[in-house]
Design a protein around this nucleic acid. Sequence first.
DNA 1: AACGCGATTGTGAACGCTAACAAGAGGTAT
DNA 2: ATACCTCTTGTTAGCGTTCACAATCGCGTT
Lengths: 343, 343
Amino acid sequence: MTQNSHMTQRNERRLPRLEDVADRAGVSHQTVSRVVNNHPNVSASTRGKVEAAIAELGYRRNTAARSLVTRRSQTIGVLGSEMSQYGPANTLLGVEQAARDAGYFVSIAALREVSREAILDATMHFLDQSVDGIVVIVPHSETLAALAEVALGIPVVAVGTQGNDAVSGVMVDQFRGTELAVQHLIDKGHRRIGHIAGPQDWIDGVARAKGWRSALQSAGLDADLLVEGDWSADSGYQIGRKLAEDRTATALFVGNDQMALGLLRAFNEAGVRVPEDVSVVGFDDQPESGYFTPPLTTVRQDFKELGRRCMDVMLTAIKEGKGPGSTVVEPELVVRKSTSAPA
Amino acid sequence: MTQNSHMTQRNERRLPRLEDVADRAGVSHQTVSRVVNNHPNVSASTRGKVEAAIAELGYRRNTAARSLVTRRSQTIGVLGSEMSQYGPANTLLGVEQAARDAGYFVSIAALREVSREAILDATMHFLDQSVDGIVVIVPHSETLAALAEVALGIPVVAVGTQGNDAVSGVMVDQFRGTELAVQHLIDKGHRRIGHIAGPQDWIDGVARAKGWRSALQSAGLDADLLVEGDWSADSGYQIGRKLAEDRTATALFVGNDQMALGLLRAFNEAGVRVPEDVSVVGFDDQPESGYFTPPLTTVRQDFKELGRRCMDVMLTAIKEGKGPGSTVVEPELVVRKSTSAPA
DNA sequence: AACGCGATTGTGAACGCTAACAAGAGGTAT
DNA sequence: ATACCTCTTGTTAGCGTTCACAATCGCGTT
């Protein structure tokens, strides 16, 4: 019945505000504000009365008014490019979870194309909203440079980067992940290990190619078979068709699972057997990868955890004004059936 | 220089506000407001002066203040559950695109578990933000019922539903999509066509099962082989292992591409050839589906378009206060290599 | 000449909240 | 008792915008 009277009120009148609660509890609006904001100097009895009044009226504080006077919005902006891909989508999810747990709203902006202008534009979009911080999920090399241009006055965390003077970074250790993959192939006895790389204007694309080279060199092996794809299954397929004809390597380290899928498809069509003829290792460990033909050995990245870490960094930056830093999440090798010893 | 003097005037570096622009242009703050809001009754010369002043000062209007007085936030809330999946993620993207084009911010909330409480809680979260409308991407049967409970006073569009008295719906025509898939198999000459269904507490899970039954019945065929999975590749795999042993159907209509992937994997392991022994049709057409072994015949849903349509409905609802309605997007059959005539 | 009317511009008051300061109550030390 | 704390509560003044209304201007009509 209290709820009924409440609903009637809501239908007819405006929502209750601080002063309505204050009247009801017999205190000043400022005291109510103190209760709502958990200020220490409120007596237990007063707090009780106020809380009761809040509950009875179904009071909820008005974000806009609060935001107007405090100049902060309790909102985190998330700026992303390939947001529908498995990795970014899950990172976004991790950010959202951690943000909402911390009482923040999450606003998103998806880049249609990655460029300095688009990044700056989206950044402005967030400034208009006076967000308290920005998480950037744009895995391109130019991202950091573009962000460095704008001194925003709010914390910025860039996923998948090491950060710089102005921007914090949170990333999965690509070097370690690549090492796990390549070392696994070396341990199986492979000596000629090629790499299907991602685009070289992507941070991870570069990092994995670099890691591959370095891992081979530490083992005293040649790193001379590198083909660049565009992350898509189709590019993996096209590359696979060529490699099926011209088989120089006994093992391939592929930049991501989707290209690996395309590659497997091409090999299957061409009668190249995996892993008997060629071993294949992917990167990402998407949920489907265990059901490829054959099930894919790959490197797992915990994207959701990455997102949560982002918010850790963000929250301490907001609270303590702490500058940029770099946080690293460890990848993990998942061995399935696409790798074996060379024939 | 003028800018400097301005900045000195306010001893802090506060952002310029309406009145600063007004002073500069030699008009009242209200006139500036009119220019900013494109009110008709402003003379061309005044408008020019004001626009110049705005540009010089780099004025941007304060969302919080505006929101406080207008009681609207220029924000659309998107409530989603399996937001990292291909479909929902792309719908989200479509919504974001259309929303930003229309000058709206997009706020998101991801459900950790689907329940009445969680939906109401997230809805409250959005109300706190005084969003102007809510898009719901929660493809479960209970969604509509939960939403109907809250009379929010703002438009709500539920993706993948037909809507009801209170809520608008935007969906891909599941019935038509299913018909395309099943008819394709019938046309190939199949007479015993099974269905691997999605969970029956999902709207699409139910709709596709129903469509499958109906399509078979119209053709005078039996609809008695139905197994329920959970959308995952793994469930497809488990089901596939059983079906491989007990082969009663020559063709299978699978509820989504991921289960189809698992199924293909299980059949491959068991030596069941696709499409020679069994034809398989999926649903969704994810980007990878063309690279399965074999490439999957499936039904394409344009999720991004779905999201855009959502915003169409939302915008007219906001503008014209129009009630709920239902919009349908057409699916499309994509024929690849997982289907053929029965042996 | 007086009037009226639309178009343009200005004036004050909200919107609901927090920050800063003021004031009162009650206790302790001088 | 006086002064002086600390703890709690109240008062006032914005934050930057829009809304409702008032005022002014230009111009055609009676």
